[in-house]
């Protein structure tokens, strides 16, 4: 199995694609930050006891006045920016991944229901999707958040509400074309239950296109979450994501304290760029039609 995978065309193309390698390298680095982040920095940025107000707004270590203890400098509370960024990356990534998983589950379920059973369910779900698609995701999320108030759970709900549509549409189309096929018809005639037909025959055939959608969506969600948090309707200040760190940096940008906003932004950019590089490769490999 492993050997077969390693010699497959997929791996072969991956090895010859510098963007795919660069993308996955970035993702590996971020995976390390997300899993091991708290152990890579010496400070818990949200433990008040470990902060020293005298160290506030220290510039990055390579600038005059910098301190090797704070490689990327500190914020207004003397918080190590690198530590804050590592913790913030965790929040951003967890939100992106979780919201993607929720959207994918909800959307796939809706798509299968609509495609497999058709009728009223189909019409209602697809009309909702139509209306929703006539608005930008960002705007919908903004309104939901303004209705809900801040909170990680609320961000997840808003992103899921925005993100399910694309899965529902893809899965519905795929389901419609699958149930036309003879083997599904045969399974139906043979008396296989709907659940079994869906699980055995339909689901496995819709997963490949979803992988690409899901990958890119994590990046989109991270950006939307950052924007929401920047506008003050995203995560609470007790659990700052990268977006909220940038917002905090914005308040002091005009005083020339650039590092508090520049570095979190660079991290988001690198993270989403890595996701998109890898997503582009997946799209070319798994789903050439979607180009």
């Amino acid at each position: 199995m492993t050997a077969a995978f390693l010699s497959s065309e997929f791996v072969h193309n991956y090895r010859r694609n510098p963007s795919a390698i660069a993308g996955s390298a970035i993702l590996v680095i971020f995976a390390v930050i997300v899993t091991l982040g708290p152990w890579l920095v010496w400070q818990d940025p949200y433990d008040i006891a470990s902060l020293n107000l005298l160290d506030s707004y220290k510039p990055p270590m390579w600038l005059p006045g910098g301190d090797a203890a704070y490689p990327l400098g500190t914020d207004g509370q003397g918080r190590d920016l690198l530590a804050a960024i590592f913790y913030g990356t965790r929040v951003s990534v967890m939100i992106g991944l979780t919201a993607m998983a929720f959207s994918c589950l909800l959307g796939t379920a809706a798509g299968i229901l609509a495609g497999y059973y058709g009728g009223v369910i189909d019409s209602v779900l697809m009309r909702i999707a139509d209306v929703q698609l006539s608005f930008p995701s960002m705007l919908i999320a903004l309104f939901l958040m303004s209705a809900f108030g801040t909170g990680v759970d609320k961000v997840l709900i808003a992103l899921t509400a925005v993100g399910w549509v694309v899965y529902a549409r893809t899965v519905r189309g795929q389901t419609l074309s699958e149930i036309e096929k003879e083997y599904v018809q045969a399974a139906r005639v043979a008396g296989l239950s709907d659940t079994k037909i869906i699980l055995r025959h339909i689901l496995p055939n819709v997963t490949t296109p979803l992988i690409v959608v899901a990958t890119v969506q994590v990046g989109t969600f991270i950006l939307i979450e950052a924007s929401l948090s920047f506008l003050g309707v995203g995560v609470p200040i007790t659990q700052p994501s990268l977006g909220l760190l940038i917002k905090n940096g914005f308040d002091v940008l005009f005083s020339g304290l650039w590092w508090t906003s520049v570095f979190p932004g660079l991290f988001i950019m690198a993270l989403v760029f890595g996701i998109n590089l890898f997503g582009d490769f997946l799209r070319d490999e798994l789903n050439p039609r979607l180009k």
């Binding site: 940038i246 914005f250 906003s261 932004g265 950019m269």
Partner: peptide
Amino acid sequence: SLVGISLPSFWVGMMLIF
């Protein structure tokens, strides 16, 4: 263009201001 898609627009605005 991929970098462009990956940038948070509000951050770009801030950098331009700075």
